[in-house]
Amino acid sequence: DVAEQLTPVLPDGPGEESLQFVSELKDSSCSGAVDVSTVWWAAAGHRELRVVTASESAVSLWQPLAPDCWGKVYTWHLREIPVIQIVPLPDTCNLVCVALGELEIGEIRLLLYSSETDSFEHSLVKTGNIKAVVGLKDQRLVSSSRTMQEQQVEMVSLSETGGSKDKQTLMPPEETVTAFAEVEGMREALVGTTAGNSVVVWNLKTGQLLRKMHIGYSYPASICHRAYSDSGLLFVVLSHPHAKESESCGSPAFRVVAFNPRTGRSAGVMFCCLPPGPAGRRGDVWDTAGAAVLTSGAVAVWDLLRGRCTAVLPAGPAGRWALARWASGGAGLLAGRCNGTVHLYRY
């Protein structure tokens, strides 16, 4: 039924860009999947893409053994505080970053293999009332945390051994930062969204807060996913988890907004709608593709440049999808069910 309902939103059918099933990974010991991701892992002079799965109390690393066959390499048990999410570290090898907490993130940990002790370990990177965290290229991690009095925004450079090499304090905006996104192709630029529905821009090298630009009142509580700088404009991919469905344009899943950082003015560029009916949940963006799990248990994929839905994974008889994440380096889409099943699709 779900597939039939969703078919009309794909004007040209699934087409070339539809998802091709590659392989399945089944974690029979998983009692409730909370996140899935990929990590580059180097061992014995060979670098490969591995899958990372997380439940509240354990994070597992999976290795490709043969076509369509995954084997669990190791499981880190984290029993004191529940795991909330895996924080992807783009281009980083042999390091998995996880956020733990109850309702909010209380600590960030690195999971790694230590060749010195020939064992898998985990180390604490940060504690506090952490509101947002993002992993950036070159093993950098930015987080915002809040005390009663003030907000702290900080970037740490991570070492291969799980420590922090270097720290840079970023100037905090007055409003709480709710999400960060790296700016494609600009190593020293970072954008964030705030609780007051603004986009802020930092210089990561100097820690300066360069600009605060209001998004507008139409879509409150916007979350940034990705940004691109082109022709003097900053294009920011936003999602609106709390936006209401409207008759004219349906429920917004992702919006691409162009900001002129010089003037602070903005204009909507592209608008991706959820299929009629189902509301959206967590979304993920890679390059110019967006994916989100719908409340119906289906996964929808959008081409953010053309503003159209390009593929839908219906919930199907095996169950509802709970997670949708893009794999590193364009390796495809990971779709996960609560029971620990993960499907890898080529996109």
Binding site: E188, V201, L209, L210, P261
Partner: peptide, 23 residues
């Protein structure tokens, strides 16, 4: 979107804003 909507555009906005913003 046009320049009239968004105001004057600068290709070096990052460097310019970094030079103008408080350290």
């Amino acid at each position: 979107c046009s320049e009239s909507d968004l105001g004057p555009i600068s290709l070096n906005w990052f460097e310019e804003l970094s030079a103008e913003a408080p350290p």
